[in-house]
Design a protein around this nucleic acid. Structure first.
Lengths: 227, 227
DNA sequence: GTAGGATTCAAACGTTCGTTTGAATCTTGC
DNA sequence: GCAAGATTCAAACGAACGTTTGAATCCTAC
């Protein structure tokens, strides 16, 4: 067979994962049937159950394939920053870039399906199914802890409890921005292609988030003071 | 029938809507079957189709019931602010409070189901089904335009294109914060009851968002300058 | 009290779902 | 080149889905 160049190691598995990323992003988990998925991927209906075990296991494999490297990249970026700073405290902007950069870079990977995954991921934080949220949380936890420590060092004047909330806000801004595809156009008629000028979007996000993280502490009538 | 105090006008309709709010929030639209819904609401299986026409029409009625008053409240709050300001420009914090106040007040309505709705709404911005997103956008559009104008007046130094993105970020922060129920606990072990101290949460959100909206304009290597 | 519209009811409709099965086919190691 | 494992295939499984039906029941107005 001279035409077959190289034998793909796990061609069926990979093709299922790629198509699942796209269809789950377009229609959601529940609304994507195995029949549509397997026919789109040009594999047999039973292939998903053979290679992954079940639809749920496919979803889990899908997240693990992307999320582990992405969070590893985040932590590595943070490590590099801290090493080259040599003990000096990092600027919050640097930490923010280390965090959001991995996501933004993946949105530029339209060909490889990375963009599909990022948009799928953004909507999954609010996914109803508990097990999916639990998986996401589990895959994120180590990187989260790492960034919490880093931000606490960069923002010593922000109490830890407040910082946790601000990280939460940051997380929300990022995931919503990357996941919502058309809602933004309802706020205003922005040219859709701007969304994928990742460089400009990153600058906008960093400016907004850095200001938010560094905001003066909130004053509230409640006498509860951060410990 | 002395025991029946008052005849509820649309008891079945209302009970279906209330239960739908709760179940859709817990399990999502697709995963909530009509059989579970109607049996939980203690109505006949055919009641949804009789009173609403279909499951999709029920979803639409559910959003209309809450979203129209909520956005009307937002606009009214903004009107009141501008009237009492008498021509003087508003502070961004005031506008933010007018926008997020309606949502936060509804999260305190645990009894009436408002909290269910807010959490459901937050996850619906990224809902896969196009028709649902379109409905949400349509119901939001007038209030959005109103707040865009108000913020543009309060932030004259922010170019309109940048402002639209920052509103987008604000929207994401709010919806994610109100929708995500347990993801925050993965960032850090924050006491869950804090989430529903609406007063404290509002102060935190306003501080974060006001700083973000007022942030210095982003500098990016790209020479594209806001028009 | 009785006609007539509104509502509720149990039952069934046809469809689609995720998964399983067992044989057929391909791939690999010797 | 052949046994053995890995993979693919067509077909079917039982269950659950949203919706429809037509009779039964309730409510209201006269």
């Amino acid at each position: 067979m001279p035409l077959r160049a190289i034998k793909p190691e796990h061609e069926t598995r990979t093709r299922i994962l790629d198509v699942a990323e796209e269809l789950f992003m377009q229609h959601g988990f529940e609304a994507t049937s195995m029949r549509l998925l397997t026919s789109t991927a040009r594999v047999n209906l039973a292939a998903v159950n053979y290679h992954f075990g079940s639809k749920d296991a496919l979803i889990e494999a899908l997240f693990r394939r992307r999320l582990d490297p992405m969070n590893a990249e985040r932590v590595a970026a943070l490590d590099a920053l801290e090493q080259q700073a040599g003990g000096r405290p990092l600027a919050p902007e640097q930490i923010i870039r280390a965090f959001i950069g991995a996501s933004l870079r993946m949105t530029e990977d339209a060909k490889g399906g990375g963009r599909n995954f990022i948009r799928l991921l953004g909507r999954t934080y609010t996914e109803p199914a508990k097990q999916i949220r639990a998986l996401i949380g589990q895959l994120y936890a180590p990187a989260m802890e790492r960034f919490k420590t880093a931000l606490a060092g960069a923002l010593p004047e922000v109490p830890l409890e407040e910082l946790v909330w601000r990280m939460h806000f940051m997380f929300g801004t990022l995931s919503y921005t990357l996941a919502a595809t058309d809602t933004v156009q309802l706020i205003a008629g922005c040219k859709p292609e701007d969304r994928y000028d990742a460089q400009l979007l990153e600058a906008r996000l960093v400016a907004f988030l850095a200001a938010g993280l560094l905001a003066p502490l909130p004053q509230h009538g409640n006498v509860r003071i951060a410990a």
